[in-house]
Structure formats: C-alpha cells, structure tokens
Design a protein around this nucleic acid. Structure first.
Length: 423
RNA sequence: GUGGCCGUAGCUCAAUCGGUUAGAGCACCAGGUUGUGGUCCUGGGGGUUGGGGGUUCAAGUCCCCUCGGUCACCCCA
C-alpha cells in the first residue's frame, strides 16, 4: 500500500493545517464584514454545467476536468471552478434570495494537469460572487475585498491588474479586427502558436512567447474599442478603485480563459512568487460575467466575482518572509499525579473546557515527565499540575512552559486566570 | 498534455572505478533523574536504496519501463 496521497494532492498536517484553517477563518470574517454570506455547492456537477459555460476551447474543458460516469450513467465532473455552480444555484432559487446576492465560499477545486509549485490537482479557493449586480461598484468591491485579505496577511509585493474585455456588443467586432491583424502577421508567430489563435484570438494577447508579446504590443487594443456603455463602466471602475486608494494597472493584454467573462477582468499578481520560481504568480483572478446566466438558459443576470488560490497565498506569505496565520493553540495542558491528583485534574480539565479555555490532558496514567513532554509537544502555554500535594491543599501548580516560571495558586482561581490569559 | 532534472531511514544527506554486513546528523523511543518538559550524557528501534524488468561473477551505482517529486511550456488559482 502506497501511503502517499494521490498525485497533485496534499495532506495538510500541522503546522500547514492550522495555517489553512486560520486563513479560512480570516477570509470568512472579512467576507461577512462586507455583507457576504456563506454558500456551498456540490463537489461535483453535471459535466454540461462546465462545458456549456467555460467555452469549448478553454483549457478547463479540453484537458483539465475530472469527469466520470456514475453508476446511474450520469456524466459528472469534479468542480474545476466556482462561479458557474453558484450562478446555477442562484438561478434555481433566485426568488428566495436577496438581490444582489452576495456569496462567499471556501472550498476545493479540481483540475487535472502536471502539478508544480503553487499548482495542484486539488486546491483550495476563497471565492466571492455578487450575483444580480451590474453596477461598477460591485466590481470595485470585489477587488477591495480581495485586496483587504492580502493586506491583512501583511502582503505588499503584488500588483493589481485590470482590463475591460468588452461585451456582446463590442467584443465581436474587436475579435474580428484582432483576427485580421493576427492573420496578416501570421508569419511572425512561433510555430506552436500559429494554429491556435483562430479558435481564441484573445489568447495571443497574454501569451508569454516573445514573438507573441511583440505582436500583442502592436495589436489593436480592446480598451480603445469599447462601446460607450462598456467604456463608461470601465471608467467608473477605475474611478472607484482610486477612491478606495487602490493602485490598479490597466493591462490591455489581460484576458480571461473562460468565455462567460464580460467587461472587467482583473488579476492580482505577486512579485514575490515571480521572483522565486517564475512560476504561477497570480494570487487571484476574477471578473464580470454578465453572459453566464443566459448561457445556463436563465434570464439576463449580471455578476462579478473572483477565485483566490489559498495555497498560493500561503506561498506568497512565505516568500515575503511574513509570519503565516496560525490557528490558536492550547492554553493549558493539565497534568495529574497519583489517585487524588488525577481525579482533581479531570475536574479541572472539565472546568477549563467549559469555561472556554482550550485545554487537554493525557488519557491514562503517565509519569510527570511524560505528561510535561506531552504539554510541550502540544504547544500549550501552561502546564496545570495537580499532584497529591496540590490535591490535598486545594491548589494547582501553574507552570509557564516558555520560561519554566512556576507558581502555586488556589484551584478556584485557575480558570479565571487562564481565561484572562495573564496567569 | 509536451520537455528537462531528480528519487538512499520520518527529514537533510553520504557511500571511491560497479565490489564484502548501505552510514551520519536531526527526529523518535528508553535510561541517566520514583514531582518537572524544552538543554546535556548513554543506549536503542528504524531501509524491498520509489516499484518492475534487464546487463553483470557482482547493481544504491549502468540500461529500459513505470510511479512519484521538481522545474519549464500550455494555462491558470
């Protein structure tokens, strides 16, 4: 039996598990503060949900989906992205939900591909969606929430890139213009890229190949060909970001891999990650998807949101030399010695826990030394020792493990002292 | 999905030209110390050298396949 987890997945054991948990908590707290409510959608969906919305030429659909047939013959796919499921759920229940519907989620995504630093087959995302809001203020808020989370972790070395990729009115014309430009310059592209642009010309814009970049620099710019409503929307988003004090870099080559995106597209790119590995530097990306609801057969419902890769956020925290978030640890490890001491230690353990003080103890009878070692390993701040002497005198020996300072206190005061954190 | 590099103890690594019983540090466990952890001393457990096949008198070492890791590409989180 191979004990290693499947390729591209990982076990989050301490201390990684505590960091992820702390990150979840912080993201949830922040999202709630901005008026978002927690949602979950199934871990798998009908394959059609993704194939119909992500676009037939997208990488997700063509090579990254974990698709299987269940025993009833249904075609199902492990969720590769979070927006389409939330919008599906919204459309089914929209009459019961507020408008706009502001949702946040913390969940795992699955994409097949070669794993590498900051990229896994199973990864975790913090996502928010504002469904039913077409106003530029919604785009701005999404960016503000993501930025606030990164900043609360101490991250600074990243850049906010924004673009508008137009809508169903102006994008088709731009697409044709770009296509014509690319065809005219076909011989200047690398062999591998030459045949790809016919399917999705916008992709050439964010290709990293030198030849493509040179072409992209000369290519017609979408930002100069937006229809009036799209241009007004984009300008309002930029003004809103400025009002929020956020520096955003307009990046005309920023496009989105999924078909349903319209207008605003944004990405937060880490300089720290790029400097270490040249690898995946996008901390999170998102945008507006006014065409998604209709692609699902629903009415016109605008929306905007993002997905943030949490493993990548933790990598960036590490690379900027910051202290990662931590799950709060044990405050007290209760040590019991002898018949009477162990009986009293069990009472103390119950009282501490009931009083909201994170506390633990050994299950069976063990020597003092072993119990203190357990306390140390568990990361407890204090050992609360109840031996025969303490049991007889109604006291507890409180030992601060960091420096070994120990003091004998009345047992009735222990819970309050540890709860106050100043024992 | 394509390509490069790499797989030796839980971790980081060593092992001469292919040569005898694969070693060390850290970690872990026990004892030194029957009421004091984290320090120190002593001892101990721990390996199908990722897996399979091949070449050879002999393979951790060379060859092939496979699995995994890593990096780049594609693309994304």
């Amino acid at each position: 039996m191979d004990l290693a987890p499947p390729r591209g997945t990982q076990d989050l054991l301490p201390p990684l598990g505590g960091r992820m948990r702390a990150l979840y908590d912080r993201a949830a707290e922040l999202a709630r503060r901005y008026g978002y409510r927690y949602v979950e959608t199934p871990g798998f969906e009908h394959t059609e949900l993704f194939s119909a919305t992500s676009g037939r030429t997208s990488d997700i659909v063509t090579k990254e989906m974990y698709t299987f047939e269940d025993r009833g013959g249904r075609r199902l796919t492990l969720r590769p992205e979070g927006t389409a499921p939330v919008v599906r759920a919204y459309l089914q229940r929209m009459h019961d939900l507020p408008s706009p519907f502001k949702a946040y989620s913390l969940t795992r995504m699955y994409r097949y591909g070669r794993p590498q630093s900051g990229r896994y087959r199973e990864h975790r995302q913090f996502g928010i969606e504002v469904v039913g809001a077409g106003e530029p203020g919604a785009d701005v808020e999404a960016i503000v929430v993501g930025d606030a989370l990164l900043r609360s972790l101490g991250l600074e070395r990243y850049e906010i890139q924004v673009n508008s990729i137009g809508d169903e009115v102006c994008r088709p014309a731009y697409r044709e213009e770009l296509l014509a430009f690319l065809r005219a310059n076909r011989d200047r592209m690398g062999d591998e890229h030459r045949d790809r642009f016919e399917d999705n010309p916008l992709r050439v814009l964010d290709c990293k190949d030198d030849a493509c970049r040179a072409l992209a620099a000369e290519a017609p710019r979408i930002t100069e060909r937006l229809c009036a409503p799209c241009r007004e929307h984009f300008e309002a988003v930029l003004a809103g970001l400025e009002e929020e004090g956020l520096k955003a870099v307009v990046t005309p080559t920023l496009v989105r891999g999924l078909d349903y995106y319209t207008r605003t597209a944004f990405e937060f790119v880490s300089h720290a990650l790029a400097s270490r590995t040249q690898a995946q530097a996008t901390l999170f990306g998102g945008g507006r998807y006014d065409g998604l609801a209709e692609a699902l057969g629903g009415p016109h419902v605008p929306g905007v949101g993002f997905g943030m890769g949490l493993e990548r956020v933790l990598l960036a925290v590490e690379d900027e030399g910051l202290v990662p978030p931590e799950e709060p640890g044990l405050v007290a490890f209760v040590v019991g010695l002898g018949e009477a001491g162990r009986a009293k230690s069990r009472d103390l353990l119950r009282l501490l826990r009931a009083g909201g003080v994170p506390a633990d103890a050994a299950f069976g009878e063990r020597p003092l030394k072993a119990q203190l070692r357990m306390a140390d390993r568990a990361g407890a701040r204090y050992a609360a020792i109840v031996g025969e002497e303490e049991a007889a005198s109604g006291t507890v020996a409180l030992r601060r493990l960091a420096d070994g300072v120990q003091e004998t206190v009345p047992e009735a005061t222990v819970v309050d002292r540890l709860r106050a954190g100043d024992a």
